[in-house]
């Protein structure tokens, strides 16, 4: 019945349904679970092989985006997350999920998990922005990207705090260790991210986080200019991110 994927929900999560939809299209077997269920019985996570933290405004993005959910992961789910990764599980964070992973120190995790080395801060414009961007795919050898064939991916961003920042040293290290997976391309950097960074992975490649929303770009009708160009129901390249994760786990 497909790879079991856990889509983690909490107060303010709001992209869970379309994430579940995209996972189904990719032949995964997703369940949407509230964090309270997981906190009560963390071992439930080990029934799954894929963890997806979807977009939204967890706890209103108060204090800073993703911060409080990141705190909960660290305080209550640290051990089970490490165990999950140890068993080869894959983690994907989209938009708010990416913010959570970065603020929990699960990304970029260059010097180990749960060490904060980067952040996603207020867009240069100071405003929330919803627009479609182009992404250059920098890594095609990862669990989450090995099926990607398109040169460029198009998908929307929708965030107020998506500017990727880190110390100069950390940014340098990130490039050296080849952990940048997606960069904004074609002048579409919507937030002022350092070096156009849109998505990164951890050193193992098991964890991927990105600000743009692949789950909103999986079928034709979701595009701003599909009219007369692609059928409304055609599967689109960003779906391959989810498919990659599923295929990887099926093979391993």
């Amino acid at each position: 019945m497909g790879i079991r994927a856990l889509v983690l929900r909490t107060a303010g999560t709001n992209c869970d349904e379309e994430t579940v939809y995209a996972l189904r299209l990719a032949d995964a077997n997703p369940d949407s679970l509230h964090i309270n269920q997981l906190r009560r019985d963390p071992a439930v996570l080990l029934d799954y092989r894929m963890l997806v933290i979807p977009g939204g405004f967890s706890y209103g993005d108060d204090i800073s985006a993703g911060k409080v959910l990141a705190l909960e992961l660290e305080l209550f789910l640290k051990n089970v997350l490490l165990e999950f990764l140890d068993r080869g599980g894959l983690i994907l964070g989209i938009c708010n999920g990416f913010q959570v992973l970065v603020k929990a120190g699960l990304l970029p995790a260059m010097s180990g998990y749960f060490t904060v080395e980067a952040s996603l801060v207020e867009n240069d414009s100071g405003l929330f922005v919803d627009r479609w961007v182009e992404l250059e795919v920098c890594r095609r050898d990862l669990p989450w990207t090995h099926l990607l064939t398109a040169d460029r991916l198009r998908m929307p961003v929708a965030h107020a705090e998506g500017k990727f920042v880190a110390s100069e040293n950390a940014i340098h290290q990130l490039s050296l260790s080849n952990q940048v997976v997606f960069r904004y391309a074609g002048g579409t950097n919507p937030n002022g991210s350092y070096q156009d960074i849109a998505g990164i992975c951890d050193p193992s490649g098991q964890i991927l986080g990105l600000m743009p929303h692949p789950e909103r770009a999986v079928i034709g009708s979701q595009y701003p200019d599909w009219f007369g160009r692609v059928p409304y129901n055609r599967f689109m390249p960003p779906l391959d991110i989810f498919r990659s994760g599923v295929k990887w786990l099926e093979k391993s």
């Binding site: 929330f128 922005v129 919803d130 789950e215 909103r216 009708s221 701003p224 009219f227």
Partner: peptide, 19 residues
């Protein structure tokens, strides 16, 4: 642009469209 007009993935004609 300050509004999220595609969350839920249902929007088939967005308020701003085209290439």
């Amino acid at each position: 642009r300050q509004y999220d007009h595609e969350v839920q993935g249902r929007s088939a004609l967005k308020p701003l469209c085209g290439p």
